[in-house]
Design a protein around this nucleic acid. Structure first.
Lengths: 243, 243
DNA sequence: TTCGATTACTACACGCCGTTCAGTAAACAG
DNA sequence: CTGTTTACTGAACGGCGTGTAGTAATCGAA
């Protein structure tokens, strides 16, 4: 425990700063809790303040507007989701690229089912009138997710090339420069078509989960997990991997 | 033109009924217009009434609540989308099942791009706090869409069976009874696994479009259409069809 | 044609929301 | 101890969905 002798304590974390960080964290915690209870639209500054015994205006000392609070929440939630996916992937040995893809996919689906509001926050209309910013922790987490997927595709690449055949020829210029730079640094031998395959893999992992989360699947099939697993196994197979 | 002699005109469509239907249609038109301009959350009863030179309360003579209005809009929009998909499919001859699948998929994507707000209305959080009802024209349109997809899969079935291998065995009891009845009546030779394949096809068509509409793809690739087309061609191939 | 009933609509009120702003009291730095 | 920065309150503004009482027009039938 650090010394309590100095009334100023550490100059970088004064008492005020600590209280501020604590309050800021409490706001986010309560916001996530409200979202879990009543959906993303239940995140109202007044409700948060009510829960904290404060006034709505007080929150403006911490977040300049409600959308900024939501943006921060998206960053946190997205990061936790990608953490879960990476952990699940890394629990499968590298010599089983198909298994790593399955692990990633299942982790993403289970995360989405565990906190559907988080999924809506990231992949849907988060809240009325909200438009995601072009940068920030949310985009950073998305970049991590994308990089993870590229890694999965790269591990399957020699065989997965088949999957890309038939499509038009891709150039590096067809994709986001930042993503391209990342990919060419980590996987120098990968052709541009691999990014297209990665995006397709992403779409394939995303589709059934999105339908399920938004209630379009639940009424039609009793066990969406089985269908999703079939689909993901087919995906792995179509990438030329065994499982 | 029907006679204007009788002041009562047709008893089934009295003057009141005609005015009522007209006003109701105007409400929906303006709602769709507001949605196209400012997203689904721009559909506010007050804005609609303002546009019509009325008071917000007047709309309650036509729709018991705002969610009912949205539900009606979802039905209209979904129906128009399915109409477009069916028309595109039927423009391709039946002896080209792969082409019909491609046509359906492209029509759905183009419809979504043409009215992304409509897509969000159906496949996303339509408006804050809205929960879709268990019945109504929306569900009916969804049933039509599902039936259309089953038809596409059925046309590919002898070859598409491969796609279903590897997965667990499905029973009719695994799926929605209404859907099952529909399928068994129209395609008596189809096994239960075909429904699972249909749902997977749906998910595959949906995934990339959802990512694109919600802005997750646009930043990464310049031509999402090319990627989507690759994916759909791969889908057709994996169903054992040529294109 | 006239009269009672139905209907469309307005006006107003209630409670919710995000946001802003002047004022206050505490915590801080020197 | 003093002057400044900070966190917070309380009230206000406009907008929202939703009810409710009242009004004026329309309708069905005597």
């Amino acid at each position: 425990m650090p010394c309590k002798l100095s009334t100023v304590s550490d100059p970088r974390t004064s008492r005020r700063d600590r209280l501020r960080a604590q309050t800021s964290a409490e706001i986010k915690t309560i916001a996530l809790q409200l979202m879990a209870d009543g959906g993303p639209d239940a995140i109202s500054l007044r409700a948060i303040a009510r829960e904290m015994g404060m006034t709505a205006g007080a929150i403006y000392s911490y977040f300049p507007t409600r959308d900024d609070l939501v943006t921060t929440l998206i960053g946190d939630v997205y990061t936790s989701a990608v953490d879960a996916a990476e952990a699940a992937r890394d629990a499968v040995p590298q010599h089983d690229p198909g298994g790593r893809i399955l692990a990633w996919a299942r982790a993403m689906r289970e995360w989405a089912l565990a906190s559907p509001e988080g999924f809506r926050l990231i992949y849907g209309d988060p809240v009325p009138g909200y438009r995601p910013p072009d940068e920030g922790p949310g985009k950073e987490a998305e970049a991590r997710a994308c990089a993870g997927l590229v890694g999965l595709v790269a591990a399957a690449w020699p065989a997965a090339r088949e999957c890309a055949s038939g499509g038009g020829a891709y150039t590096w210029a067809d994709f986001d420069p930042a993503l391209v730079a990342h990919v060419r640094e980590d996987f120098p031998d990968l052709p541009p078509a691999a990014i297209a395959v990665t995006l397709r893999v992403w779409g394939r992992m995303h589709g059934l989960v999105a339908l399920e989360i938004y209630g379009h699947l639940r009424a039609l099939v009793h066990d969406p997990a089985a269908v999703y697993d079939d689909e993901m196994r087919d995906l792995v197979t179509s990438l030329g991997l065994a499982h």
